[in-house]
């Protein structure tokens, strides 16, 4: 079965998700994972769908464009590999600082350099008068990376950037 990744973004208003998923349902596509949120007034949706035999990428994209034509939403469809298991988050990183360029780039650059996968991340700029930047990320720290050393490196970089930062393991208790 073919899989497609669908991205839709537009100025937030009610009905965008209904239009997108309605068109996908009408095309016979089955939703798998979906993540949507509002980013400073823009509704952004990402969906991975399983497509029925014979549904071409171009045809699906055209159907979606038609469905959202009246909503001023941009849509893109790309082919996606069949979904693997979700990446396992082992640690959480929270960082915040007065807003300035480069916080995310520097922190994620350090993580990428060590082979640490970011499995989920959400950043927000809050307080317009004295802007504060916040980052909350879930990380998959591979077995070969010492979490204590990684935490020390992150704190050192945080000190250099003037970022307040906490890093620790995801704790799950099976009951």
């Amino acid at each position: 079965m073919a899989h497609y990744a669908v991205m839709a973004i537009g100025a937030d208003r009610p009905g965008i998700l209904a239009a997108v998923t309605g068109a996908l349902y009408g095309a016979g596509a089955n939703l798998e994972d979906v993540s949507s949120t509002i980013l400073r007034g823009h509704f952004a949706s990402m969906l991975v769908v399983e497509a029925p035999e014979g549904l071409a990428r171009e045809g699906l994209e055209a159907a979606l464009r038609e469905a959202v034509a009246s909503l001023d939403v941009s849509v893109m469809v790309r082919e996606a590999e069949a979904a693997g298991p979700p990446s396992q988050a082992t640690h959480t990183l929270v960082a915040y600082a007065p807003d300035r360029p480069g916080i995310v780039a520097r922190l994620s650059g350090l993580l990428a350099g060590k082979g640490v996968n970011v499995t989920d991340v959400s950043c927000r700029m809050v307080s317009e008068d004295r802007p504060v930047y916040t980052l909350v990320a879930e990380l998959d720290v591979p077995a070969g990376v010492d979490p204590d050393a990684l935490g020390a490196d992150l704190r050192a970089l945080g000190g250099e950037l003037g970022v307040d930062l906490t890093f620790g393991p995801v704790e799950v208790e099976t009951l």
Partner: peptide
């Protein structure tokens, strides 16, 4: 007293 913890379940 309310507390929050991430739980898993078999």
């Amino acid at each position: 007293d309310q507390e929050v913890l991430r739980e898993g379940c078999l």
